[in-house]
Amino acid sequence: MDIRALRYFQTVAESGSYSRGSELLRISQPAVSRTIRNLEDELGRPVFKRHGHGVTLTEAGKLLLERSQLLLRQIEQTKAEIRSGHAGLSGVISFAVPPAAGHFIVPPLVERFGQAHPHVFLKIVGGFSGYIHEWLVRGQVDLACLHDPVPQRGFEATPLLNEEVFLVGRPGALGTGGAPVRTEDLARLPLILPSRPNASRRLLDKWTAERGISLSAKVEVDDTTITRALLRQGVGFSLLTRGSVEDELSRGELEIRSFAPAAYWPFALITCQNVPRTEAQQVLIGKLSETVQEVVRDLVRSGVWRGEIPEP
Rank of each mutant, 00 (worst) to 15 (best):
R45A: 11
G154R: 03
P107Y: 02
H103I: 10
T78M: 13
V97A: 02
A80I: 12
I132R: 01
F113V: 00
L143M: 09
R50G: 05
R153S: 14
Q74W: 03
G54W: 07
L136C: 05
V92W: 07
P98T: 06
D142S: 14
H53S: 15
H86Y: 12
G139W: 01
P118S: 08
G52E: 11
I93V: 15
L109H: 07
E66R: 15
G44E: 01
A144I: 09
A144N: 03
P107C: 10
L109Q: 04
Q152H: 05
P46C: 09
E134W: 14
A80L: 13
I124M: 00
I105L: 15
A80V: 12
L64T: 02
A144M: 05
V110G: 02
G127M: 01
S90N: 11
L70Q: 03
P46G: 07
S84V: 15
L122Y: 03
L64M: 04
K123W: 04
G44R: 09
S68I: 08
L57V: 06
P107S: 07
L65N: 05
Q69C: 12
T58V: 09
E111Y: 14
G126V: 14
E40A: 08
V120C: 01
G127S: 03
V92P: 06
R112E: 01
H147C: 12
V120T: 02
L63G: 10
Q140K: 15
L65K: 12
E81A: 14
R67W: 01
P118C: 07
I124C: 04
L146F: 04
P46F: 10
T58R: 11
H119R: 13
E42M: 13
V55E: 00
H117R: 06
V141N: 04
A144E: 00
R112Q: 11
A80K: 11
G127K: 02
